[in-house]
Every structure is written in C-alpha cells, then in structure tokens.
Simulated assay, not measured.
Amino acid sequence: MTTPVTARDRAKAERADALLQEASRLFAERGYSGVSLEDIGSAVGVSGPAVYRHFAGKQALLGAVLIKVSEELVSGGRNVFDGAADESERMRALVTFHVDFALSNADVIRVQDRDLAHLADADQAEVRRLQRTYIDLWIDALHPLQSGATDELRLRVQACFGLINSTPHSTRSASRSKKTTARTLITMAEAALLAGL
C-alpha cells in the first residue's frame, strides 16, 4: 500500500525541481565555480541555507542536475528504440529525439560540457554509466544499418552527439527557427551516421 502524496510533498518536489532548473541555468551562465548556493536559493525565492532541505550542497545539486538529465536521455531513448516500426525508423527517431532534447536543454548541455569534473566521484561514475548505456542503445540501433566493428560504430555515434550537442553553443541568438535548425541537424546527423553505405 502506498502512502498518499500530500500537498506538502508536492510543494517540496516542486521546489526541488525549481532548484534543479535554476541551478542548470546559473551553472550554464556562470560556471559551477561562479555560482553559490545563495544565488540558486535566491533564484527560487529561498535562502541559501534552505537549499540544504533538498540537497546536501552545491556539488550534490550539480550531481542531481546531470544524473537527472542522463536518466531522461536513457529513458527517452529506450522508449524511442522500442516504439520504432523498423530499423531505419528507429535510427531516425533516435536522432530526432536527441536533436529535440539538445535544442530544448541547451543549459544542461553547457553544464555537462564544462562542469562534469566538479562532480563527486560517485555521481561522475553514475553519469558515465548512464552515458555508456545511452551510447550502447544507439550502437544497437545503428548496427543493422552500418557495417563495421563496434568501435567504429561507437565513433560514429559519439561524432553524431558532438555535432548535435555543439549546436546549443552556437544557436542561442540565431535568427533561424528551432524547426529549421532541427531539420538541418537531423539531416547532418543521419549523414554522419550512415556515411559510406
């Protein structure tokens, strides 16, 4: 039997989500070292010490941000993988999923690129484990479409991620629409994955 969720439980969960969102934004803008717990708390209307009701400290908050996004990638990627009708659709759906994710989560991509080294060892190991799981999912999708050893397929997948994930760094003030950018990225990513066929 599960305990019913109370209004207080919901409020606490909403505050924790708000802290994660603002931490992502502030870490992206200023870098991990340039942000204090007071800054993060202030962004959601609480004092710095009140953040400790939700997270053990700034490093734990960074870990929660990067683990959460890594879990979302794995979960979303699995759903896409399992829902595809055939091999070609599966690969295209994964590319589309990742492009949409990258364009919608530019802040967390910047944080991942710049501040991964600031994670506690256990959190860094968990992020790396989740990243490997996500990459392996893509390799499994690519294998029926592209001949080559696993190392070659891994290189293609990681190069594809590099292409897609670099975009939020350069399109912040772009005049192109998100839809146009997504279409271009999908075309380029598929070409990179399937080149040589």
Score class of each variant (00 low, 15 high):
residue 193 L to G: 12
residue 20 L to F: 10
residue 159 A to D: 08
residue 45 G to E: 12
residue 75 S to Y: 05
residue 137 L to I: 05
residue 188 M to P: 00
residue 68 K to H: 08
residue 102 A to N: 10
residue 134 Y to W: 09
residue 165 N to I: 00
residue 149 A to T: 13
residue 76 G to M: 03
residue 75 S to I: 03
residue 9 D to Q: 12
residue 48 G to Q: 12
residue 9 D to T: 03
residue 81 F to W: 09
residue 19 L to Q: 04
residue 41 G to H: 11
residue 25 R to S: 15
residue 188 M to T: 07
residue 88 S to Y: 04
residue 81 F to V: 03
residue 51 V to W: 03
residue 46 V to F: 01
residue 190 E to K: 05
residue 139 I to K: 07
residue 24 S to R: 14
residue 192 A to I: 15
residue 151 D to A: 15
residue 178 K to A: 09
residue 78 R to V: 02
residue 186 I to Y: 01
residue 41 G to D: 06
residue 161 F to M: 15
residue 10 R to Y: 07
residue 45 G to W: 14
residue 164 I to H: 14
residue 32 Y to G: 05
residue 49 P to E: 06
residue 50 A to M: 09
residue 158 Q to G: 00
residue 2 T to A: 14
residue 165 N to T: 12
residue 28 A to H: 06
residue 75 S to T: 15
residue 193 L to H: 12
residue 180 T to I: 02
residue 101 F to H: 14
residue 3 T to F: 12
residue 55 F to E: 01
residue 25 R to K: 15
residue 48 G to V: 07
residue 154 R to Y: 12
residue 70 S to G: 14
residue 1 M to T: 12
residue 196 G to K: 08
residue 13 A to V: 13
residue 180 T to D: 13
residue 41 G to I: 12
residue 188 M to F: 09
residue 15 R to S: 11
residue 70 S to H: 11
residue 172 R to E: 13
residue 69 V to G: 05
residue 52 Y to K: 02
residue 133 T to C: 05
residue 38 E to L: 02
residue 86 D to T: 08
residue 38 E to P: 00
residue 66 L to V: 06
residue 187 T to E: 13
residue 114 R to C: 03
residue 71 E to C: 08
residue 147 S to M: 10
residue 140 D to M: 04
residue 137 L to N: 07
residue 111 V to N: 09
residue 123 D to K: 00
residue 148 G to Y: 09
residue 116 L to W: 07
residue 50 A to R: 15
residue 95 V to H: 06
residue 174 A to F: 01
residue 73 L to A: 10
residue 96 T to P: 00
residue 29 E to C: 01
residue 179 K to C: 01
residue 119 L to F: 10
residue 141 A to T: 03
residue 55 F to P: 01
residue 79 N to F: 01
residue 74 V to G: 08
residue 40 I to H: 06
residue 12 K to T: 07
residue 184 T to Q: 05
residue 74 V to F: 07
residue 61 L to A: 00
residue 80 V to Y: 01
residue 50 A to Y: 08
residue 145 L to H: 07
residue 134 Y to N: 14
residue 63 G to Y: 02
residue 68 K to E: 11
residue 119 L to C: 09
residue 33 S to C: 05
residue 185 L to A: 08
residue 145 L to M: 10
residue 47 S to D: 04
residue 84 A to M: 09
residue 82 D to I: 00
residue 182 A to M: 01
